[in-house]
Amino acid sequence: MKIRKANQNDLDEILNLFTDTISEVNNRDYSPSQIKAWSSSSKDTDRWLLKIREQYFLVTEEEDCITGFASITNEGYLDTMFVHKNHQRKGIAKTLITALIDYAKENQLKEIITDGSITARPFFEKHGFKVIKKQMVNRKGIEIANYKMKKLL
């Protein structure tokens, strides 16, 4: 597995991975209408390009195919973390979270905050994140549950 910083040429592959993962992995915890509303954010390509440019945004690859991605802001907000539906349980998310934690420590951040999905909550808890609160976010008029979570560094 190779890990590297993302660039704008990765955008299409990142967005496909994002929508496929939500549709195929998160569907056990979210309804079809929630999946549709959540994945619709892939249409805002300018927003995603801004994330790639301004965040510490990493991708993992196998045989020149992106298998996962994750990003964190300079302030310590873990914004994205997704692993390809066909590459679950291979240590990709662990590799990504380790790299983001290392980045946060190198930048003398005291904590990492994220809004973890129901699906991702056990993974984040395994890596030292604590639930601050359950929350409902509105996407396209649809309420979607997630968890505000924090890891102290």
Rank of each mutant, 00 (worst) to 15 (best):
R121D: 13
S40Q: 14
Q34V: 05
I97R: 10
N138I: 12
H87D: 03
K90I: 13
A99S: 14
I142R: 06
A104Q: 09
A104S: 13
Y56M: 04
K140V: 08
I142P: 10
P122G: 11
S39A: 14
I132D: 07
R121Q: 15
Q108P: 08
I35T: 03
Q8Y: 08
G91V: 09
D29E: 12
N86M: 15
D44Q: 06
Q135N: 04
K140E: 15
D10G: 11
L58H: 02
N9D: 12
I14T: 00
D29S: 13
K126H: 04
Q55L: 02
E143L: 14
I72C: 06
N16K: 14
D64E: 07
I97C: 11
L58C: 05
K130T: 12
K133E: 11
S42C: 08
G91S: 06
I112Y: 02
I72V: 14
Y56L: 11
K148W: 07
W48A: 03
L152E: 13
R121A: 15
E106C: 04
L96K: 00
K90E: 14
G76T: 14
I142Y: 05
L11M: 06
N27H: 08
A93V: 11
L78W: 11
A70H: 05
F57Y: 10
K2P: 04
L96Y: 02
K110W: 03
M149G: 15
Q8S: 11
G116M: 14
G128A: 00
N16L: 07
N138M: 11
G91W: 09
R89Q: 14
L100P: 05
K133R: 15
F57P: 01
T21E: 04
W48S: 02
E63V: 06
E111I: 02
E13G: 00
Y30S: 02
N27V: 01
T67G: 03
K2C: 03
D79K: 12
K133A: 06
I142T: 15
K134R: 10
G91L: 05
Q34K: 08
W48V: 03
L152K: 13
Q88A: 08
N7V: 00
G91T: 12
M136A: 13
M81H: 04
V25D: 07
L58S: 05
I132N: 08
L15W: 09
G76F: 06
E125I: 03
H127Y: 14
Q108V: 15
L96R: 02
M136C: 10
F18K: 02
I112R: 01
I142D: 05
N86C: 10
W38G: 00
V137S: 14
N27A: 09
N138Y: 05
R4V: 07
S39Q: 09
E54N: 12
K133F: 09
D44G: 07
M136L: 13
H84Q: 08
N107F: 11
I144F: 04
R139W: 07
Q88Y: 11
E143R: 07
I112D: 03
T67M: 12
K151D: 04
Y56H: 15
M81V: 08
L49V: 00
I144H: 04
A6N: 03
D79S: 13
K90G: 03
R47D: 04
S33N: 09
I14Q: 00
L49K: 08
E63K: 12
T119D: 07
K110N: 10
K5S: 10
F124P: 01
N7R: 09
K133L: 06
I3G: 07
S31Y: 08
I14P: 03
D79G: 01
F129D: 01
S39G: 05
L153I: 15
T80L: 10
D44T: 13
L49P: 00
